[in-house]
Lab assay of single mutants.
Amino acid sequence: MEVRTIKVFTTVDNINLHTQVVDMSMTYGQQFGPTYLDGADVTKIKPHNSHEGKTFYVLPNDDTLRVEAFEYYHTTDPSFLGRYMSALNHTKKWKYPQVNGLTSIKWADNNCYLATALLTLQQIELKFNPPALQDAYYRARAGEAANFCALILAYCNKTVGELGDVRETMSYLFQHANLDSCKRVLNVVCKTCGQQQTTLKGVEAVMYMGTLSYEQFKKGVQIPCTCGKQATKYLVQQESPFVMMSAPPAQYELKHGTFTCASEYTGNYQCGHYKHITSKETLYCIDGALLTKSSEYKGPITDVFYKENSYTTTIK
């Protein structure tokens, strides 16, 4: 009895394709271990004539594949690729409408935090270190965002349907971005203890939790000093293409032309909904596939993004 075979390709990165001759009487799992086709788990399936010449994702289970996976995804987590594939199996079914010149995501599976993050990423200057993220990001900007969303979920250790947080998501993504040249110098002034300067680099240099107003941050924000008295913390120097200011959701007025974009969060910790506000020729609110415009805006804002380049204080 002759062994019926077909020729397929296996890959971990969709760049390096490895030619395989597979036995049609055995499952993919018996031949390769966990195997995925377009995100779908085909591990328990036997090869079919229609699979001839198709590319299958496999887990990096030998040295060659491990090197290829690390170079593309910059992670050695053995569960990463499987999590990416199972997320992709959902995100490829989502709709990605162009809204006001940006790629958004039609609401499904509690994905409003991903839509808000995706919209924000198209408006701030950011370059990702893992080629996987950078490639998928370019495709997302062009309207094909399924891979990018699935990668975000995998890097953030999230599953489809789980509630997510924009600030946490951005923080994970910033860790995989090139923020080497970003720098922030802060000064804390206390009447009792004097003053202390701190220099922050990388992710810490672009994120701040405690106030939404970048102007206020430049002037000074009140913080408790270690001595128990009130101290003032203010920005001395900022070198970065953008800054992200966050605070627990509270009524906040966004003035046209003073910011790049913002995240609105309605609801409580267990259950809520994100919308995205962007400042173009007027203010726009993007909620999944829905767009509304207004000249002014007041609502429960939790993150505001500002364009920056270089700032030095005039406070002496």
Rank of each mutant, 00 (worst) to 15 (best):
A154N: 05
Q134P: 04
M85Q: 10
M244E: 02
G267H: 11
A146D: 07
V58R: 07
F242A: 03
G257W: 01
N178V: 04
V203R: 13
D13E: 07
Q122A: 03
F32D: 05
L59Y: 12
E71I: 07
S181G: 11
P78F: 08
N89Q: 11
L254Y: 01
T10W: 08
V3K: 14
H74R: 09
S25N: 14
T11S: 10
T27D: 14
Y57Q: 08
Q123T: 06
Q251L: 12
N268T: 10
Y234W: 09
T103C: 08
L17K: 11
G164Q: 03
R139D: 10
K275V: 14
G101A: 04
P248S: 10
R66V: 14
T159F: 10
N110Q: 02
A146W: 07
T76Q: 10
L88H: 06
N61F: 15
K191A: 14
T282K: 14
V203Q: 08
P249Q: 00
G82Q: 15
I277P: 00
T120G: 05
H74V: 03
D180L: 06
G29E: 11
Q175F: 06
S240K: 01
H273C: 04
L88W: 11
E52C: 10
T198M: 13
K201T: 14
K93A: 11
L186T: 14
N49I: 13
N111Q: 02
H256Q: 14
I6C: 14
Y172P: 01
H90Y: 12
Q197F: 09
N187I: 09
L88Q: 06
L179H: 05
I6P: 06
V3H: 15
L151C: 03
V58N: 06
T169Y: 01
D180W: 06
V221N: 01
V206L: 04
Q197S: 12
M85Y: 14
E2D: 12
R4Y: 13
Y252R: 01
Y138L: 14
T27E: 15
C225R: 00
G267W: 10
E264V: 11
I301G: 01
E239K: 11
K201S: 13
G272H: 01
Q222Y: 08
L17F: 11
T198N: 10
C225D: 03
H48F: 12
L235F: 01
A87M: 02
L186F: 13
Y172H: 11
G29D: 08
M209R: 15
T11D: 06
G33P: 07
V188P: 03
A289F: 06
G272C: 00
L126N: 06
H176L: 13
T43G: 13
Y214Q: 05
L81T: 08
A250L: 08
Y57P: 05
K183C: 08
P34E: 13
Y113G: 03
Y208G: 09
D62L: 07
L102F: 09
K46Y: 12
R83E: 02
A108D: 07
M245T: 01
L126E: 01
T75E: 09
F32E: 05
G164D: 01
L88N: 06
T19K: 11
G33L: 03
T19D: 14
A117F: 02
P97I: 10
F148M: 12
T278V: 13
N89D: 11
K280A: 14
Y137K: 03
P224Y: 13
G210F: 00
T302M: 00
Y234P: 00
V206Y: 01
T27F: 15
M209L: 12
G101C: 03
T312Q: 14
R83N: 10
P300R: 13
V304A: 01
T292S: 11
P130E: 04
Y208T: 12
L212C: 09
V58P: 05
Y274I: 05
W107G: 04
Y96C: 03
T75D: 09
A142D: 14
H48T: 15
K255G: 07
V3C: 11
N14F: 08
G53F: 11
L283M: 12
A262R: 00
P248Q: 12
K280H: 10
Q270M: 08
C285V: 13
L179G: 04
V21P: 11
K298Q: 08
Q196W: 13
Y36S: 05
S246V: 04
Q251S: 11
Y234K: 08
